[in-house]
Design a protein around this nucleic acid. Structure first.
Length: 401
RNA sequence: GCGUCGGUACUCAAGUGGUCAACGAGGGCAGACUGUAAAUCUGCUAGCUUCGGCUUUCGGAAGUUCGAAUCUUCCCCGACGCACCA
């Protein structure tokens, strides 16, 4: 049993920074955290994809604070719930197969290890909710369901929206919040952490904890990593930072965030002090070039995940590539037969998707040979040794066999 | 089971016998401009091409037709409504 540390500064940080809401109240939770009692806290993550991303990192960072304070922290993988899928705005989610879930999960622990400790004296526990949810009988489920009315469940904005817009809403989707809430009951937790989009689900869990365990479950909702103007980072945008990315990729993706995400990113994903962030806000408002601060954000994000050294390298790399337009390090290398057409070489190595794609790029003047500083204009060009640049971001090094 | 409406490229979504590789929007890619971006403007976005064209696509299969994404038949899938549940 590890010792509980009562560090008011850290506790305040946990209660203030990146917080979208605390239930039942910030004050109540503070009293609890100051009491010296060892609490059990968890956040659930549905393995719907192979990577954890920075959105997850926000929660994990919060968990880390609690781990450092000596509390019992559980990293819960929603392997069962992901089979149902947290309802989405547009439609019922695709059901994942067991294989997909296993595959997605396989790297999560490793990725999360970058931010949180699964080893040591006060190790974070890695759990999966399949352990208890798969054992529920219909009887149990009915009992669970009987605690809520349809009216209550339909309070969820998402459900309202789906109904209003006549988008099918299946029965199993509306019990998702109950299952999530049951996780807290099964683990007997004192607190749940989750994204602001999870508030409804987490509050349902609060009710369940009261009903089943007669226990107050605290809820801390994290701010989401969206830019204030609504431009989000996401998989579809291609600029979502995955915890599985290497440092350079992370840096690049962070730099492609809109300016409006800088302050949010600094608050949620770095350890830059809030005073400093306020400062930066003023500076940007008074017309200072935001790029400097975006670089700071990118650096700090990478640092918090990969460490100082890798962050510096990533920054240098990025500056060389984009500011000075040099060739980055670690360019992918491809060995090709001599006499091969450049087109064949690039297509067969899947650097460009088809011959037509290649033709288009040549017409657009998007391909250059770096060493010779020559723009490729002939579709039938034969490959030569060296680095080719395709567009702004793609590089490949060709080595003739 | 009956009925109605649907299934179109990465996504959304037009098209309802030829002018359709298929409008438009989003996304993506590229170029210009910048502070990497974002915003903006421009072009591209099925495959193959000797750049003349050729080939394959509109849930699936078969058919009608000189010609089909568009019509017919059967099948598969979805939504909605109704009925049934002895």
């Amino acid at each position: 049993m590890s010792k509980i540390i009562i560090d008011e500064e850290k506790i305040d940080k946990f209660l203030e920074r990146g917080v979208a809401g605390i239930f039942p109240s910030k004050e109540a939770l503070k009293t609890k955290l100051m009491s010296g009692e060892r609490l059990t806290i968890y956040q659930g993550f549905d393995p719907t994809g192979p990577y954890l991303h920075v959105g997850h990192a926000i929660g994990i960072r919060a968990l880390k604070i609690l781990q450092d304070l000596g509390h019992e922290v559980i990293f819960l993988v929603g392997d069962f719930t992901s089979k149902i899928g947290d309802p989405d705005k547009g439609s019922t989610r695709k059901v994942l197969t067991d294989e997909e879930i296993e595959k997605n999960m396989s790297n999560w622990k490793k990725q999360a290890t970058q931010l949180i400790d699964f080893k040591g004296e006060n190790a974070v526990k890695f759990e999966r909710n399949n352990k208890w949810l798969s054992k529920l009988k219909l009887e149990d489920i009915l009992k669970l369901m009987s605690n809520f009315t349809i009216q209550q469940i339909l309070q969820r904005d998402l459900f309202k929206k789906r109904l209003k817009e006549d988008i099918p809403l299946k029965l199993h989707e509306i019990i998702y919040p109950l299952m999530q809430g049951y996780d807290g009951v099964a683990m007997g937790v004192d607190m749940e952490i989750g994204g602001a989009d999870q508030i409804f689900n987490m509050l349902v869990g609060r009710d369940l904890s009261k009903i089943y365990l007669n226990k107050e479950k605290f809820v801390r909702a994290n701010k989401m990593m969206d830019a204030p103007d609504g431009i989000t980072m996401s998989k579809t945008k291609g600029n979502g930072i995955n915890l599985g990315d290497d440092a350079s990729q992370m840096f690049g993706k962070a730099m492609s965030y809109p300016d409006s995400a800088i302050l949010n990113g600094l608050e949620l994903l770095t350890d830059i002090s809030m005073d400093e962030i306020k400062n930066i806000e003023t500076k940007i408002k008074t017309g200072e070039n935001p790029m400097r601060f975006k670089k700071l954000m990118a650096y700090e994000i990478v640092k918090s995940i990969k460490g100082k050294k890798e962050a510096s390298v990533a920054q240098e790399n990025w500056e060389n590539t984009f500011s000075k337009k040099e060739t980055p390090e670690n360019v992918d290398e491809f060995i090709v037969e001599s006499g091969m057409l450049l087109m064949e070489a690039l297509v067969s190595n899947k650097i460009v998707s088809s011959n037509n794609d290649f033709r288009r790029l040549v017409e657009e003047g998007a391909i250059t040979h770096k060493e010779e500083d020559k723009k490729i204009t002939d579709v039938k060009e034969v490959v030569i040794n060296g680095v080719y640049k395709i567009g702004k971001k793609r590089f490949c090094k060709i080595i003739i066999k």
